[in-house]
């Protein structure tokens, strides 16, 4: 097998891993921000923010890896995808700017109104970033028009019923992850409340996953073909089956007031959704017709970075894990000062 054949496959897998890591990690901390919509008390908001303050920057770095990695190893995909998604990417960046600084600023504002403004910025930033990511995902799934290696679609291609549905699904999905994170990291009345939110959000998110999944195969005959022709459909039906199994576990864990299990069940949902996307996409990078081989950078570029990545990614996982471990445990248990 030549380098030009296997390198793009390895890189596609690595990038997919990066994107999944991003969605799960920043997903829960964006979700915590989205839950500001229904949690108003200062003390509880402080606990919520503190539960993610030491790790949000690390979580967001996976997004830089996503953008930077795409640039590095699939420059053609980057050059077609980014202009196509210009408005949603910019909206996401603006959201992340407000939210990122609000972490610090909300503690620095001296007066009530200033504080309230940065709390709103934290919520809105999280919400807008999540919604824009959903729109971007939807825009990618529905396919991008291009000609001669350049984006050839219009200004509003990313906006329609399908992409909005994806946007809503991502916002609520992140909120669910955030709620489950808070079940894990908090206790007392706040924990009891987020547990109720999780129960409700779980059902809604399941419904949305169902809707997006049913819609996707009809967007493009290729997708339909993958999902509904025998014997591929065997795999196809395994995914929804596993989702149902996890659902059962999720609600049982909520009922038994488990602390950690609900979070990991939702992580499982997300992973299965990704697997589903993978089934639809493979071997496309950008539907309807740019494959990972079309989009790949020359082997010399991909190899150069792969050498580093194969050493560095495990190290990154180790020290990121260490940092999470340092900040393990319940947050804000006895914050009686201030």
């Amino acid at each position: 097998m030549s380098d030009a054949t296997w390198l793009p496959v390895v890189w596609a897998a690595l990038l997919a891993f990066g994107v999944v890591a991003y969605v799960l990690l920043d997903g829960f901390d964006l979700g915590v921000g989205i839950l500001f919509a229904i949690e108003h008390k200062k003390a509880e908001r402080d606990i919520m923010v503190n539960s993610i303050a030491p790790m949000w920057d690390g979580n967001e770095t996976w997004l830089v890896l996503g953008g930077g990695g795409l640039f590095a190893v699939f420059p053609l995909a980057y050059g077609v995808f980014m202009p196509a998604m210009y408005p949603t990417i910019l909206a996401m960046l603006m959201g992340l700017i407000f939210r990122g600084v609000a972490f610090e600023f909300r503690f620095r504002a001296r007066r009530r109104p200033g504080r309230a403004a940065w709390d709103t910025a934290f919520f809105l930033g999280s919400f807008v970033a999540a919604f824009a990511q959903g729109l971007t995902l939807g825009g990618l799934v529905q396919g991008i028009r291009h000609e001669g290696g350049r984006y050839a679609g219009g200004w509003w291609d990313w906006l329609n019923a399908f992409t909005v549905l994806c946007g809503v699904a991502v916002v609520l999905g992140y909120a669910l992850l955030g709620a489950c994170w808070l079940i894990w990291r908090t206790e007392g009345p706040l924990q009891a409340r987020v547990r109720r939110y999780a129960a409700l959000l779980g059902a809604v998110v399941l419904g949305l996953i169902g809707m997006v999944s049913l819609w996707t195969p009809f967007l493009d005959p290729q997708f339909f073909d993958r999902w509904f022709t025998f014997p591929k459909s065997l795999v196809t039906f395994a995914v929804p089956g596993l989702i149902l199994l996890l659902t059962w576990k999720f609600y049982r864990a909520l009922g038994q007031k488990r602390h950690r299990t609900p979070f990991f069940c939702v992580v499982g949902w997300f992973l299965l959704c990704f697997a589903g996307l993978g089934i639809s996409f493979w071997p496309l990078m950008i539907p309807p017709d740019i494959t990972i081989w079309d989009a790949a950078a020359p082997p010399a570029s991909q190899k150069f970075l792969l050498v580093g990545a194969s050493v560095l990614v495990p190290i990154i996982l180790i020290y990121t894990g260490y940092s999470y471990w340092v900040f393990r445990g319940k947050v804000g248990a006895e914050t009686h000062y201030h």
Binding site: A53, P54, M55, D57, G58, E60, T61, V64, L65, G68, G69, F71, A72, V73, P75, Y78, G79, A297, P298, A300, S301, Q302, F304, L305, G308, A309, L312, V313, I316, Y319, T320, Y322, S323, V326, F327
Partner: peptide
């Protein structure tokens, strides 16, 4: 220029940004 510039910036993310972010919390 992506094939030349991209991997170097990829290294920046893998070596520098993760290092900063990973230890910043601590």
């Amino acid at each position: 220029a992506g094939p030349v510039v991209g991997p170097i910036m990829g290294y920046e993310v893998l070596t520098a940004f993760f290092l900063e972010a990973g230890f910043l919390g601590v």
